[in-house]
Nucleic acid binder design. Structure first.
Ligand SMILES: [Mn+2]
Ligand SMILES: [Mn+2]
Ligand SMILES: [Zn+2]
Ligand SMILES: [Zn+2]
Lengths: 144, 144
DNA sequence: ATTTAGTTTAGAACAATTATAAATTAGAAA
DNA sequence: TTTCTAATTTATAATTGTTCTAAACTAAAT
């Protein structure tokens, strides 16, 4: 009740959601930051529970994240594996992915120049281009 | 026992696997084709069971697919969602992904030209660059 | 033929996600 | 304020995809 919650209240309202205590906790973790936050649901849930010092229901986290995603406040990232990753950076950009550590890092749009793209298949339209630059530690001679 | 199974036997042996009936069934579905096959495990299992007209254990499909992936005969594709997609095309290439139909299509390496890539983060090395061009039907005004 | 290590299998276990339905709460209305 | 209602939270169940297990089976070496 101290800090400025207005922007979160608006963000929630514009997503068709009431500004509850739980949702405001989620907003603080997601949007009160300068750098991009890439996360899985369980990582987010842990951060929320640390910051508010009380539990939050897993269903609430899922529901709110999905609402934000559907309203363009979060993006989902294409990655191998069976966990879903989300991104607070909703501008058009690309990623480094260190598959050894699981760490994602933004690559600004202008840092990759794509000079040629194929035409979309007949009757289809290109919606977006995702680029994942997979990286790993220099020294080790790891497979795949 | 009629068709030429030698190449599959070799592929299995070189993956450290004995050529069993089940594994040869899997090989026929995976490798006896001209065009790329993009699949999930359950799609593959259904095709195998249609082609051999008897059931195959899910564990055998998983095990064999993983062995082939680890030995470079299959690739895993980065995609949103919680199902894992595999690819019989192990050459370097990119993809169209129609997220309305779930359909994946190859884009040849030379059809996309990347003219600028950022340096890998300090101490890390670029292992590969995945590009997914997400497409959807022209007409509909679908969200996301 | 015998032996043995590798394989298949059904089912259990596990992990991520989604669904359910009862208790709680936000916020409008009185 | 208090009352009322629909929205929300929650614990838990259900569902889905994947991995593990251990007993039955089989390839292939001896
Ligand atoms: Mn995936
Ligand atoms: Mn994913
Ligand atoms: Zn990002
Ligand atoms: Zn492909």
């Amino acid at each position: 009740m101290i800090s400025d919650l207005k922007p979160y209240v608006e963000r929630l309202r514009s997503s068709g959601l009431r500004p509850t205590k739980q949702r405001l906790s989620i907003c603080k973790v997601l949007f009160d930051r300068k750098a991009t936050f890439h996360f899985t649901i369980d990582q987010l849930k842990k951060k929320i529970e640390k910051s508010r010092k009380s539990k939050i229901s897993l269903a609430t986290v899922y529901n709110t994240v999905h609402a934000f995603k559907n309203n363009g406040y979060l993006k989902e990232i294409s990655l191998r594996g069976n966990k879903t990753f989300f991104d607070t950076n909703v501008t058009s950009h690309y990623h480094f992915y260190d598959y050894e550590t699981g760490e994602l890092m933004d690559i600004k749009n202008e840092e990759i120049i794509v000079n040629k793209l194929p035409l979309a298949p007949k009757g289809k339209k290109i919606k977006d281009v995702e680029i994942i630059v997979r990286v790993a530690n220099n020294n080790h001679n790891q497979k795949k």
